[in-house]
Design a protein around this nucleic acid. Sequence first.
RNA 1: UGGGGUGUCGCCAAGCGGUAAGGCACGGGACUUUGACUCCCGCAUGCGUAGGUUCAAAUCCUGCCACCCCAG
Length: 367
Amino acid sequence: MRTDRSKKVVLAMSGGVDSSVSAWLLKQQGYSVLGVTYRLHDLADKAVADASAVCRQLGIPHVVLDLRKRFERDVLEPFTAGYLQGRTPNPCVVCNPVLKFQVLLEQAERWSADHIAMGHYARVVRHPETQLPAIARSPAGQKDQSYFLYRLTRAQLERLIFPVSGLMKDEVRQLAREAGLFVSGSFPVAETPDSQDICFIDTDYAHFLNEYAATHPKWQQPFARLSEPGVVIGTDGQEIGRHQGLLHYTPGQRKGFETRSIDRLYVVGRDASANTLVVGDRDKVATDTFTIEDVVFSGLDSVNPDRRLDCRIRNTATATPGRVNRMPDGRYRVTLERKVHAPAPGQSAVFYDGDIIAFGGVISDMT
RNA sequence: UGGGGUGUCGCCAAGCGGUAAGGCACGGGACUUUGACUCCCGCAUGCGUAGGUUCAAAUCCUGCCACCCCAG
């Protein structure tokens, strides 16, 4: 007799603590679990081996999907193109809805499962006003990952389960210990390090982009240009130092260039045509207004200019209250109650109604 | 080779006789599923060079070297 669809779930597994404990929890709750591990790039071998070991231990089926082609097309290409346009892209924000969660949905269809699951620290709730499904912040505070999930589609949200959503990170590690989970090489799951930085880069992004460009002829020329050293100027236009190639800088950055100033200086802007880097004092890169585009609504399906919401322009920072106003061209103008440090075109601004994500968009302009 | 000025870490730069501040860069950590920011730690046995004065000199004196400016 076939398992009831409503008790079947497809879970993405990375071999880390969060997804491994998620698998264990789902099984405890009586779900029939299918573990899925993605091969997104060539750094994925360990994840595949580790996830496989956990699945074997839990006695759940495990499939490995080679998504390298899709990942390159849907994540790497836009990421690379974004840097070329002088933006500061956030690959995770794209990868989640377009690839990771979408593939789970596809796999759930194939496996006749009603649910998909991820080991993220976030909750899925319904907004009390609209009854729309939306991501909400995790009670785990510091570890909350809701910011990276604001672009998930309604279809993805409707089926989504976050098994560790009510837990703190150390509680998850404790469960891993109690469950006696091990990854490959008999290394305890509880001791695996937290993931951090871009998953497909093991050096730094500038290094990665140059190598990527080297193997993709169409990118070679433009990236060579972005790697040419040039002049650093102050906001008054005076030359005060040298930079090592505009590719290495993003708004608000303080490091990586040399000046003959005795002050701490931050990247204010880049002039690609003149190959100059403009730097200034910290207050020069703080702003309380900017524009977002490509907006995705979640908990709310529209927004009133009077509505006060909490804005996050990066995952880690505390939120800043503010309002948004729809412009004739479909973009939204953001006005915050306090200045924030260096919002960058290409980065995302996510608006929360309390703990629930109302909507979010991509920063397009600093004005 | 007449006059004036300057030489302290890769870059700025304090110090002005009492035993080398600070900022940037750089290296290492913390933080971080994006870029950044932030926070810790490290970083000149030596102050252009050779002597001298002094209990004690980057700080005073002298020679030399280098660079800059003015006057040729």
